[in-house]
Write a protein that binds this DNA or RNA. Structure first.
Lengths: 167, 167
DNA sequence: GAAAACTCCATGCAGATGCATTAATATGAA
DNA sequence: TTCATATTAATGCATCTGCATGGAGTTTTC
């Protein structure tokens, strides 16, 4: 899938090897920096309220959204973009805090299921009380509704194609 | 700067405490996930080519852009959004590789200047040979020029107000 | 049905990060 | 001047991450 563009001199150039335009570079720099600033701000608010960090929330939310409150580690990795070894240890810590429980996977002893506990559900709700308003302040406060939609749509185009579409 | 919105029932609600709209939540989730995916992809290409990670490049580029190839640590922190202790140790490593040199700050023995070496300039150029095309592939290949501009403009609105404007 | 190949999860180790604190210097107030 | 305060950078320690590997279990192949 090699896209051809015309450079200033009008030569067709394989985009794979071409340097990025200024607009593309700006988009890249802003993507990274806006991400750092917004995420940093939101994480700081969570921490200031005594809550754990965003990855913990991501796991809790993913599990809570399952009808039975259960999910395989692999699903969580895909949903929240974790590395396998990273999630394994995160689940150790969360299990240690009583927020999730690892249970055997029926019919395959390699696999497992992760189940959210009542305590986990409670923490997710309490965190949302800080997290939701923080998101709103850091994004909703700076973009109109229409702009937020545009932004989400543009960012979606950047994302790796996946089996399960939707952000 | 507390913006008032009307919720479904029509009550005015302080946005600071209100939950985010779906568009805002989508923008937030996509911001984080697109950032992870794109940055992950680009970092992977750098690593596969045997180059150090992005923070190293950020330091080198910032220094290279200075007329004298020098900058104070504080300026680098602000430009690349590093934590102080983090940059301190990054500079240790980069100095150990001969890419930068710490030199005394004239007139203030607490401060210092960081200077890029010839080796550092060379590495920056070599990295750009991989980095530039990678950016182009991961962003330019997925957005039109106009979309890239829009995206950069929207992301800029999310950024923390700074003395020095511009991305 | 045995062996090879693969999948899933855990872990040892090195490297990086976050947090709190320290050391050194500079500035400002009494 | 002198002492309290502030600024700059470094560091000890705990935590977290990345990478490579390992062990248990499953599927495929012949």
């Amino acid at each position: 899938m090699m896209q051809l563009h015309r450079n200033r001199e009008g030569f067709a150039v394989a985009q794979n090897v071409q340097e990025p335009s200024e607009a593309v570079t700006d988009a890249w720099v802003c993507l990274i920096q806006a991400g750092k600033e917004v995420a940093g701000g939101i994480e700081a608010e969570l921490k200031a309220s005594g809550f754990p960090s965003l990855p913990w929330y991501d796991v809790l939310l993913h599990l809570k959204k399952q009808p039975d409150g259960r999910s395989s580690p692999r699903e969580i990795e895909n949903a929240a973009l974790f590395e396998q070894y990273n999630l394994s240890r995160l689940l150790d810590r969360m299990e240690g805090e009583g927020l999730v429980k690892r249970i055997p996977f029926p019919g395959d002893k390699r696999r497992q299921l992760v189940e959210i506990t009542e305590e986990g559900r409670l923490l997710q709700r309490r965190m949302w009380g800080v997290y939701g308003p923080a998101i709103n302040r850091h994004i909703g406060g700076k973009l109109s509704e229409k702009e937020a939609e545009q932004l989400a749509a543009l960012l979606l185009k950047l994302r790796r194609p996946k089996n399960d579409p939707g952000c």
